[in-house]
Design a binder for these strands. Structure first.
Lengths: 128, 128
DNA sequence: TTTTATACTTACTTTTGTGCAAGTACTTAC
DNA sequence: GTAAGTACTTGCACAAAAGTAAGTATAAAA
């Protein structure tokens, strides 16, 4: 996992924002390019590591595991490993993680409406 | 504003995700460390550039203007400049921008509940 | 003895985000 | 003619996020 320096200006800002702004608190937990996609995959039920990899083909293993570890640390999901060889690991949303569902859903609705309203813009972009 | 290379792997992934995953579409528009904070400030009504600066003291002018431009480009807010000297510019949420309110609100609620549930963890971290 | 399967690790490079510090433009007031 | 006020703009440095490519561990199956 990428190490983080503890005492940069950015980290101080983050710590402050984390405590002062609840929205920033959430953004911390769900931002990272693949996190929402991973969460979405898990909304439909537990998945093994390899199933996630198959479901999200363009993610690299490094990013997948890194985000899974982070989500686990943030207690949004639960990792369960069976002591067998080859390994068998499943990831499941925690209660907190599941409570994100209405938020992710609202975001999706907003996105669909917003991009519908701006279809002509996207279209003209593609044409130009 | 920071220039972006058009043909990096990252940009290709973003484009794909942008079209395929509505949640990512939203994340694109509200991520950036200060964006949610700026949006929050504007939820209570139009503000001048200088008022935003005063309301968010720790943001640098570069970041403030950069995010304001991006939000304007994404049509989440509307910029109105009076042709006077010294300049007088106001920023107002667009209809799309205002529709983010329930989402931001839901995020805040989640954050408060989640951090309440995990108070003991934060506490033990501070002590160690 | 080599291969297969699964779940990771590690080192390194590229790309993007943020902060810092300084400068610009333009007009009215002093 | 110098200062004040407002809204930017620019260049540089560094931190963080993401990508690339390769390697590790283990035991059972071939």
């Amino acid at each position: 996992m990428t190490k983080i320096k503890a005492s940069s200006t950015i980290q101080e800002n983050k710590l402050a924002a984390y405590q002062l702004c609840p929205v920033t608190y959430v953004m911390e937990k769900i931002s990272g390019y693949w996190k929402p996609i991973i969460l979405y995959q898990l909304l439909s039920g537990s998945k093994r590591y390899s199933e996630l990899k198959k479901a999200i083909p363009s993610i690299t293993e490094k990013m997948l595991i890194q985000h899974l570890k982070q989500l686990e640390t943030d207690q949004l999901l639960i990792r369960e490993a069976l002591p067998v060889v080859p390994p068998h690991v499943t990831y499941t949303l925690s209660a907190s993680g599941e409570k994100l569902q209405p938020i992710l859903h609202a975001m999706a609705i907003w996105a669909i409406e917003d991009s519908r309203d701006k279809e002509h813009i996207l279209f003209s972009k593609n044409v130009s």
